[in-house]
Design a protein around this nucleic acid. Structure first.
Lengths: 209, 209
DNA sequence: GCGATTAATGAATCTAGATTAGATTCAAAA
DNA sequence: TTTTGAATCTAATCTAGATTCATTAATCGC
């Protein structure tokens, strides 16, 4: 069902051997980007992790930039889709603030545990060349939109304290979440611990008493 | 009292013309790093902004890495010192949660308005080569320590809700703050607006009701 | 088994940028 | 006026990586 070492990179099982190699390169790039960051990511590092020589990468991708752009695109959409899926599975009468907390959990899980691609996005989105950034814009905007809606709905039913600037609050919350890969380490704290505290912070930070 | 264009980069007035040039290069590097990020920062960009040819930089700094390391060191300590100064100026009986809010404000001000150096640090600390990172470790740890104390004190007087993991909460809050340079733009929102919402989020997010 | 296509390689090339070498300017001291 | 040292420049060098390419190895349809 899956090709990577990382628990649940939910790639469809590749149809051909070639597609498998391509996925392996992509996954290696995602992992390297998530660990070392954009500037320190050499094509040679990626190739090595994928068990290949650097030129082989060009058989599958037009350029290093192309490869990285694809990692980011996958990461961005995987992030958004995971959160959307989780939200869609909630009972229809779930209170808005509970939906926000579910989104917090989903975001953290995908970013810290499920996908190197998502990690790569949050760790590097601020460092990308304009070129790549432009390609992410649409998907990224959709994700912001999702959060905007979550907050707006909560506000509409009076679940958000007065005096909170919704745009600012949204960016602060997303910032707190996006920064987690910089400090969280699976070996020293439990993921559910992070999730619980983040939810508590958000719920009481935004919520009316 | 000051040499830069940016409002309040509180450098001491340089003793000699040479020192002024050095400061100009440093400031140019800080600004470039804060705007373009580590990977996109060319020595040529810095030199141009400082009104020089790239080789001239070597008259003042041993290498690009050295220059960047110094920017980061200045930024990190400026950030910490500004927050420390603000906290030290508070009345001694200021309640712990108010002290936290003051720190939030100070951090945001120095990062978003007062110092390109501080911005450079929060935007790039995750991308730096191990080498430079090592040099920041001490100062950076001191800053974390400061926040640790702030939260621990608040907790001690019962100002923090139960069920909050202090370490996680601290990192989430600092993440929210450190992420702000990625999205905040002076032209579209007021700084005080950001500050107010951030304080509200933190106060209610952490605080006992 | 056997050509044809697909995958991958080692060795060579190309290039952006950092760095160095050496020449030049210029203000101040002698 | 000459000398000197500090500050800067232009032109050349050096290097890490990305990229290209001619060739080899693997795989597949028959």
């Amino acid at each position: 069902m899956d090709t990577t070492s990382n628990g649940a990179e939910g790639a469809v099982v590749p149809a051909t051997k070639a597609a498998a190699t391509r996925d392996r390169i992509l996954a290696a790039a995602a992992r390297t980007l998530s660990l070392k960051g954009y500037s320190a990511t050499r094509l040679a590092d990626i190739a090595e992790l994928a068990g290949l020589r650097p030129p082989a990468v060009y058989y599958y991708f037009a350029s290093r930039e192309e490869l990285i752009a694809e990692v980011m695109a996958v990461g961005q959409s995987r992030l958004r889709e995971h959160v959307e899926t989780v939200l869609a599975a909630l009972p229809h009468d779930t209170p808005p603030m509970d939906r926000i907390c579910a989104a917090v959990e989903a975001h953290l899980r995908v970013e810290l545990d499920l996908s190197d691609f998502a990690t790569a996005v949050s760790r590097n989105s601020g460092q990308l060349p304009e070129d790549i950034r432009a390609r992410l814009r649409e998907d990224s905007a959709a994700y912001f939109e999702l959060w905007r809606d979550l907050l707006a709905t909560a506000k509409a039913v009076g679940a958000v304290r007065a005096g909170i600037d919704l745009r600012v609050a949204r960016m602060l919350v997303m910032g707190a979440l996006n920064w987690t890969p910089e400090w969280w380490n699976p070996r020293q704290g439990s993921l559910t611990g992070v999730i619980r505290t983040a939810q508590s912070l958000v719920r009481h930070g935004l919520g009316a008493p």
